[in-house]
Amino acid sequence: MKRDPGLYDYLPYDRRPKIRWRGGAHVAFWLAPNIEFYELDPPLNPTRSAWPRPAPDVLGYSYRDYGNRVGFWRMLETFERCGVRGSVSLNVAVCQHHPEVIEACAARGWEFYSHGTYNTRYLFEMSEAQERELIQDSIDTVRQHTGQKLDGWLAPALTYTERTLDLIAEMGLTYCCDLFHDDQPGPVKTKNGRLASIPYSLEMNDAIAFSINGLSPRAYGDIIKRQFDRLYAEGAESGTVMCIPLHPYLVGQPYRIAAFEEALAYITRHDKVWLATGREIAQHFLAHDYAAFAAAGETAGEAP
């Protein structure tokens, strides 16, 4: 095991090249709805049980199922009213289980990136061959069902091996959302290819806000606005990224969606905001900033 992931250089916030977003925007803002399928009785991964209760965990399973049956459709209307697209963090098996959800996103020009096959199949302890098979499955399924080239990766249920980011870069993906070390994109050091880390934010994630931190819907709207205000102000100096990761089964609950919409509308009312997708942010960063950022980093990872 490594003591340092060795995935990025140390590049302090006050000493790095300036990012200039399109149209002089201060913030590249993107929404990352996690469209997921959790299996009722998945195979066991020895590192992690899929459910807190023995299968069938009716409460856990049905709570997540609410997202596809109900919550997604409410969230979709909210996005439309605010004029924003989603970048879908997709368990690609949803293409088979619920193609109507995929069609609704595709029809609105949303991006699809991979969040693994199911949220109940974990990368921990996978062989390299299994991991390659899983990534190829995502590339093929997204291409086949949406016509899109797969560019982004958020590991299913945030499970990894040491080789995950090397493999996705080698297999042609261009960005990952798995690193939480920054508010700007950054280069990821991989064996092959060029991979950008795009800020995704666990702090703004509705699953963390609601299910871990127990925030009320209005308190969630409030932290979204505070996060945005600060990144907007700092972005006048050098462009920042704000992501709101969402789960339709959470934000799409009746008592939550209106408070979220109010916060989202607050953001979209600002003029120096670039309403982007994950892919567009990655493309911009790779084309304009990646090289300068890579050159500016100091070698990190020399643990005492």
């Binding site: 299996e39 195979p43 098996a93 289980h97």
Partner: peptide, 16 residues
């Protein structure tokens, strides 16, 4: 992980 960890018997339209 077992070799069939990535077998998906219920990957189909609708529920699992």
């Amino acid at each position: 992980l077992p070799p069939d960890y990535l077998a998906y018997a219920k990957r189909r339209y609708g529920m699992d």
